[in-house]
Amino acid sequence: MIAAILSLTILGAALGLILGIAGRFLAVESNPFVDEVEALLPGTNCGQCGFPGCSGAAAAIAAGSAPASCCPPGGKTTAVAIAEKMGLALDLAAVADTGPKLATIAEDLCIGCCRCIKNCPTDAILGAPKQIHNVLKEACTGCSACIDHCPTEALVMQPVPITLQHWVMPKPLAA
């Protein structure tokens, strides 16, 4: 009886020692997902997700406090990639993918105030004071960070037109 109690106690102490040492040397500092998730995000820090920049959003997603689909400019593609990385189930129906959008400038309304230019995270708006501005289609991420800064509502988000080259065959309606 004493032998059994003693051996169990020693076993416990020895295993505890191993765990204590292991805890010291194998400690993981930070969540390894954060960097990987940040790499998947657009990196434009547009703030549409409600977090301070893409790194903030990545930390929130990695911590589980934000859904994989929290990045509107990233759209479905980004959401799917993040969900895959995190091993999350993603409800695609919840991702309101209205398709990519572009900022467009109504030329008759633009007064050339340059406020939008300062707020564009990708320098996609060209223009000079008192000149009508222009959006570089290739560089616009559709983040709509500029919209609220336009004093005349000349900036509008419009869906990217579908062309023959970009057309995707619709999925058959399931029977």
Partner: peptide, 11 residues
Amino acid sequence: SDQVRIPVFVV
């Protein structure tokens, strides 16, 4: 402590 939490519970 965190290190031996699970063994303790199991015991």
